[in-house]
Structures are given as structure tokens and as C-alpha cells.
Design a protein around this nucleic acid. Structure first.
Length: 206
DNA sequence: CGGCTGATCGTG
DNA sequence: ACGATCAGCCGA
């Protein structure tokens, strides 16, 4: 497997929509107890700062939780949702401008990553006392949602507020080239309360 | 495939 | 109280 170049600060120091689109096809890398997992990013959403009614920072809500969104582009923002799942975001723009990209789904970049993701997903299911579940079904939905992505790549609040441009264990690299016409767009998910912003086409997927 | 439901806890 | 959700279960 050839070494891929890591994404530099300049990649993340752009507006959230651009970063959300450009992250498609890139590879999210994280060190886990079972080794390095690598996931090809296939779905993202842009959250566009204090004016965005769908964003945690709407209205300038700068709190301890949302603080990483205000940090420089390339900073991770991991939060707990519904009391049991983590959601992984990467801040865009520069210090003080709270735009971010929610990573909604990845597919394993190689066989070893698939093995690790399967192991982590199964482990989590056992912890929750879920039934074993079919191997095929689990593979099909390995990391196709923000919560599942975090379980499959062992991402939790420990990984919050990390500079992914500098970190040795949590970063994003180049991937295979993605043509603009491969990028689909749609409404963001799960923000019905966001009024007109709920209809903005700020969700991107392959 | 689509709709419904219970689970579970840090944040403000 | 309330989520940027998930998995299981049901019916079509």
C-alpha cells in the first residue's frame, strides 16, 4: 500500500461547503487498539457557522462543547448524540469562524481496515447486548452513518479537539481522484428544527 | 425499502 | 428536557 500524502492546513482553511465536497474520496486514518484503520469518506455535511440554524453554533453559541468548531481548520469536533453515539466533524476555515464538516459515512480502504471495523462494530454490539447479527448485514452497513462510522473507527470524545494536520494518530490523506460529476447533493439529515436551513443542499455523497 | 420505537447521557 | 442516531421489528 503506497503512502498517501496527508492533507495540509490549506485544504481545511476553506469554507465548509468546499471542504465537505472535497473530503469525498479522501481517507480518514485513525490509530486503534487493533492497528490503523483507514476509511474512504463517502458522505459529508457542511455546517456553516453562526448564521446556520442547523449548526450547534447557531446564534454565536460558543460554549465548552462547541469550542473546537471555532478552532482552526483541521481541528476535530467529536460530540455525543442521543446519549450513546459519537459524531465526527472536522472544523473548516480559520480560528474564530465555526464552520465544520460532519463525516456521515466511510467504506474501508483496505482489507485490514475492514477486519478492524468489523471487530469494533461487533465488540460494540456485544457491549450493548445486541444479538450477533448476520456478518453480511454488518458488512453492508459497516460505517454508513455518523454513529456507526465512529464505532467502526474507534472515534470518541477522547479524539475531540485534535489538530488533524499535526496528529500522528488521527488525520486525513489523499485518496483516489473524484470527478465533480460523481458528487451528489441533498438535504442535511436530522435537523428538521432548522426551518429554511433544513432545506439547504449541504449534504454531499458519492 | 419505509416507518416506528426504545435506548441513554452530556450539555446548557 | 433534548438531540447533526441506531438496530430491530414490522408491513408492503
Amino acid at each position: 500500500m503506497r503512502a498517501r500524502k496527508r492533507l495540509p492546513r490549506s485544504f481545511f482553511a476553506r469554507d465548509g461547503i468546499t471542504v465537505a465536497k472535497e473530503l469525498l474520496g479522501k481517507i480518514l486514518v485513525h490509530e486503534t487498539p487493533f492497528g490503523l484503520v483507514r476509511g474512504i469518506i463517502t458522505e459529508t455535511e457542511a455546517y456553516m457557522g453562526e448564521e446556520d440554524k442547523g449548526s450547534h453554533t447557531y446564534g454565536g453559541k460558543r460554549t465548552e462543547r462547541t469550542e473546537p468548531m471555532y478552532h482552526k481548520g483541521g481541528t476535530s469536533y467529536v460530540y455525543l448524540i442521543y446519549g450513546m453515539y459519537s459524531c465526527m466533524n472536522i472544523a473548516a476555515m480559520k480560528e474564530g469562524i465555526p464552520q465544520a464538516v460532519l463525516l456521515r459515512s466511510v467504506i474501508p480502504a483496505d482489507q485490514e481496515s475492514e477486519r478492524i471495523m468489523l471487530k469494533l462494530r461487533r465488540e460494540a454490539a456485544v457491549r450493548k447486548g445486541k444479538k450477533p447479527g448476520g456478518e453480511e448485514l454488518l458488512k453492508k452497513h459497516l460505517a454508513d452513518g455518523p454513529g456507526k462510522l465512529c464505532i467502526a473507527m474507534d472515534i470518541s470524545r477522547r479524539d475531540n479537539d485534535i489538530d488533524m494536520v499535526e496528529s500522528k494518530s488521527f488525520y486525513v490523506t489523499e485518496g483516489n481522484k473524484v470527478m465533480p460529476e460523481q458528487v451528489r447533493e441533498g438535504k442535511r439529515i436530522g435537523i428538521d428544527y432548522a426551518e429554511e436551513a433544513a432545506d439547504f443542499l449541504w449534504r454531499f455523497y458519492l
